[in-house]
């Protein structure tokens, strides 16, 4: 299974390097959204709950863009069939795709957070944010892979991905936004609350195990 996961991740990274589609689009989309928030809210600087909310809504919507593209090459260029013909565990597709999405999100967030700090955020960024980002990324990666695999074989893929991903990530956004809010507060950062990290961890665990158990059924024909 390690062999197959490695092959799939490698293939996706080469493809992404050669024809960068998803990741740059996600960064540009996020920056555009910050500009929109600036004008829509008429705020030069944001902090606290508002900053946290803007950041997470933007990141989630940017993630939806990436989720939409996740399986396009597999579907349109026969990747599913090629993979299914190989003597490998089918769950390796889930692990590989979730890892790729996770890496994408991390890479995108480096740029998005920098842009956020420059454009909108009042207080300076705290290193503790990384913990929240990593836990939330894991959750988005798992649920995003599931949603993308569900939607890719349907006629209404572009519609279904956001419609499914947004309600499913509500607990994730609640926990991530609440956890980040004290870190983004003006005048000395508040402490990271353990219970929100616990919710994020629980979410990752529940959907990770669930995806592991049922992903095979999405690949079969």
């Amino acid at each position: 299974m390690r062999r197959a996961i490695g092959a799939l991740i490698r293939k996706d990274l080469i493809l992404q390097r050669r024809t960068p589609e998803a990741a740059p689009a996600m960064v540009l989309f996020s920056i555009g959204t910050f500009v929109l928030f600036h004008f829509a809210l008429d705020e030069r600087e944001v902090s606290g709950n508002l900053a946290s909310g803007i950041l997470w809504v933007t990141l989630l919507f940017a993630a939806v863009l990436g989720i939409n593209r996740l399986f396009v090459a597999e579907r349109e260029e026969g990747g599913f069939d090629g993979f299914l013909l190989a003597p490998v565990d089918r769950t390796s597709m889930l692990v590989a795709k979730a890892t790729v999405l996770f890496l994408f999100l991390c890479a995108v967030e480096v740029f998005v957070l920098a842009a956020f700090a420059i454009l909108l955020l009042g207080p300076s960024l705290q290193p503790a944010l990384v913990v929240v980002l990593l836990l939330a990324n894991a959750g988005i990666a798992v649920i995003g892979t599931l949603v993308a695999a569900l939607a890719i074989q349907t006629r209404a893929r572009d519609l279904l991905v956001p419609l499914l991903a947004i309600p499913l990530s509500v607990p994730l956004v609640i926990a991530a936004a609440r956890a980040c809010a004290p870190l983004l507060t003006e005048g000395g950062a508040g402490a990271l609350e353990a219970r929100w990290l616990a919710v994020l961890g629980l979410y990752d665990l529940v959907f990770g195990l669930l995806a592991y158990a049922i992903f095979d059924f999405l690949l079969e024909e």
Binding site: L146, L150, Q153, T154, L164, L168, F207, L210, I214, F217, L218, E220
Partner: peptide, 10 residues
């Protein structure tokens, strides 16, 4: 099959 997967996740 897909509906079942959805029902389980949801």
């Amino acid at each position: 099959r897909y509906a079942a997967v959805f029902a389980i996740v949801a």
